[in-house]
C-alpha cells in the first residue's frame, strides 16, 4: 500500500511536540519577554538552516516543476468518467449532483435520445461558485462525476465554467487506458459485496 493510500490512523510514526505552557501572570509574561530578548533562540534557528543547507538536505518543493502527491480524497476539478467496458459516458442524467450541490453551481439539461434513453444535453459546473465539497461525487450512483487532481484553476474571469465535454475523459486518453478508477469520495467501499443481500433470479 502506498503512503498516500494508508488511511489507517495510528500506524504512522507520530510523536508529541513539547510546547511550553502559556504565561499566566503579568510577571510570567515579563519574564518570557526578557528571556526571549536576551537568549540566543534566533541564532538556534539560523544555525539549523545553515546546517541543513550545508548538508544539502532540502525539503522545499520546487513547484511548479515538482508537485506533491495528492491524497485519495483530494477534491479538485471534477472529471466525468467513461464506462471501462464500452467507453460510453457513465452519466445517466439522474440529476442528483445538481440537486445536492450546496453552492448551486451545477446545472444540467436532459432529453430523450434516439435510443429512447435519457441523455445529458447540457451540463455545466460554475467553478467560480464551487466549494469542492465533494457531495456531487459522493451522491453519484454511477461514479460518473468524480474529483480529479487538477487544482490549478487560472481563469480570466471569476466565474468560469466547465461543460460536460471538458470534464469527460478524452477518447484518446481513455483508449490509452489512462482513465483511472476513482478511489475517493463516493467510491465503493472495499468489502461492500459481503454486505449485499442477494436477490433470487428465476432464469
Amino acid at each position: 500500500m502506498s503512503v498516500e493510500n494508508n488511511r489507517n490512523v495510528g500506524q504512522q510514526d507520530y510523536y508529541m511536540v513539547d510546547i511550553e505552557d502559556y504565561p499566566e501572570s503579568n510577571w510570567d509574561q515579563f519574564k518570557q519577554v526578557v528571556k526571549r530578548t536576551f537568549s540566543t533562540e534566533l541564532f538556534v534557528g539560523l544555525w539549523v538552516v545553515l546546517r541543513e543547507m550545508l548538508k544539502f538536505n532540502i525539503h522545499t518543493v520546487k513547484y511548479p516543476e515538482e508537485k506533491l502527491p495528492l491524497g485519495p480524497r483530494y477534491r479538485a476539478i471534477h472529471e466525468m468518467l467513461r464506462l471501462m467496458e464500452s467507453g460510453t459516458e457513465r452519466c445517466i442524467g439522474c440529476g442528483l449532483c445538481e440537486k445536492i450541490c450546496i453552492s448551486d453551481c451545477i446545472r444540467m439539461e436532459t432529453k430523450i435520445d434516439e435510443n429512447s434513453r435519457k441523455e445529458v444535453s447540457e451540463y455545466s459546473i460554475n467553478f467560480g461558485r464551487c466549494i469542492f465539497c465533494g457531495y456531487c461525487a459522493e451522491v453519484c450512483p454511477e461514479l460518473a462525476i468524480v474529483h480529479g487532481g487538477r487544482y490549478e484553476n487560472v481563469s480570466e474571469q471569476r466565474a468560469h465554467y466547465s461543460m460536460f465535454d471538458d470534464l469527460l475523459t478524452p477518447m484518446d486518453t481513455f483508449k490509452a487506458g489512462q482513465q483511472k478508477e476513482f478511489p475517493g469520495f463516493g467510491a465503493i467501499i472495499p468489502g461492500s459485496d459481503e454486505s449485499v443481500k442477494k436477490t433470487p433470479l428465476a432464469y
Binding site: C94, G95, K99, T110, K111, I112, K118, E119
Partner: peptide, 9 residues
Amino acid sequence: FMYKTNAWE
C-alpha cells in the same frame, strides 16, 4: 415530458 426534468427540481 419524457426525461426533461426531475420532479424535485
